[in-house]
Write a protein that binds this DNA or RNA. Structure first.
Lengths: 209, 209
DNA sequence: ATGTCATCTTTACAGTGTAAAGATTATGCG
DNA sequence: CGCATAATCTTTACACTGTAAAGATGACAT
């Protein structure tokens, strides 16, 4: 670990940029987005409160990099989930993977959608977001028997945004503990493993054959 | 308006509790949830920074009352939307009403689901939340031809949480500007009036009617 | 009228993000 | 090698935040 204090380390950390991103991500995992502070991140990296601003311009700059990592990880999982099985099974697997990601990393997940906290001129963020989106689009395209090249038709677009909205809404409602009161499922894993798949079935699979 | 300064008003406001709730709601409407501060709310009500804590215990207590009002307003709109038309049309109308509420009052909407910002032992909040929920449940029950008394069956519950998740996710994605990049719809009203209804159609109406 | 109690203010404290200026070290160039 | 320059990090300072504690005020019942 690179946790030396200033006295023994000197002024130059050597890998501060990455160390700050890691520290921020860990802090997010421990305390959630609302427990995040820039100063605590700096503390964990063993530097002064103003050090992060030099590398990222400010809080938003640092969080944008963390969000980009989150999107990349989500894209990776969606790609894996959309890799095997029938198209209907893939769609369900991707939905489950989406919600699972949100439940496993609530801090990252919330951050990724906080438009007011991120810098949207950052190419790293845009690219990672696009990849996650494409993973879903590929499955819908396959479901509708459309080639990679041609533009998705209106109903395909409705399906794409529809499935995303469903998974996204379910994830948010789960994290905000709005479902625990009405569904007799106890834990969050119950929700993920039984309730959500049954919703996808009811909404999609049963009707697509 | 009850905006007199301390000098001319004296110590007792007379209606401070309600005035603070109104001021908080307006501040939420103007600057969003992230722009909200307790001190600014107090400033607008013309009282000292510590005055609100006496009535609400702290920030969470005040916001809980505002959230309860938000839930009540949402419940009112859902009840109206679920009042006329076929069951399928009612379901669509309630979905649209849900998203419209979110787009019209982003601050309220975000607050209502911020589990970490609200006091959940407050009966006013619980009651208002339950009413909104019931408005949706009534429609799903009608859709499945079930009486008011009997318990909703598994598929009905899946539909209920499914439609809610879809509307909720779509609302969030819209507010976080995640849909504008891919759908060729320009404004948020476009999303509401054309894109979202088409999603509901694709997901529900076409297959139930 | 008088004491009690709710209401609001004042004061204070530990936090926060970040701008500005200073200290230190790496690095490229003669 | 010697040295200017630039990059990196620290220090200091400021305007905020929420809220706890203690003091001031006035309404109200006895």
């Amino acid at each position: 670990m690179n946790e030396k204090k200033t006295a023994e380390r000197g002024y130059h950390h050597g890998d501060l940029r990455d160390a700050l991103i890691r520290a921020a991500d860990e802090l997010l995992a421990e305390r959630g987005l609302e427990g995040f502070t820039l100063r605590e991140t700096a503390r964990r990296a063993g530097v002064s409160p103003a050090a992060p601003s030099h590398h990222f311009g400010g809080t938003a700059g640092l969080l944008t990099e963390v969000a980009a990592l989150g999107w990349a990880e989500l894209a990776r999982r969606l790609a894996i989930a959309g890799d095997t099985g029938s198209t209907a099974e893939r769609l369900k697997a991707q939905g489950v993977a989406y919600v699972r990601f949100a439940v496993e990393f609530p801090g990252r997940f919330h951050l990724m959608f906080r438009h007011d906290m991120l810098l949207h001129d950052q190419p790293s963020l845009d690219r990672a977001t696009g990849e996650a989106w494409n993973a879903l689009e590929r499955t819908v395209r396959a479901l509708r028997g459309q080639k990679e090249g041609e533009e998705l038709d209106a109903e395909g677009e409705a399906m794409l945004i529809g499935i995303w909205s469903t998974a996204h809404g379910f994830a948010h409602l789960t994290l905000d503990k709005k479902l625990s009161r009405m569904a007799e499922c106890g834990s969050d894993t119950d929700m993920l493993d039984t309730l959500f798949p049954s919703i996808i079935d009811t909404l999609w699979v049963k009707r697509l054959g």
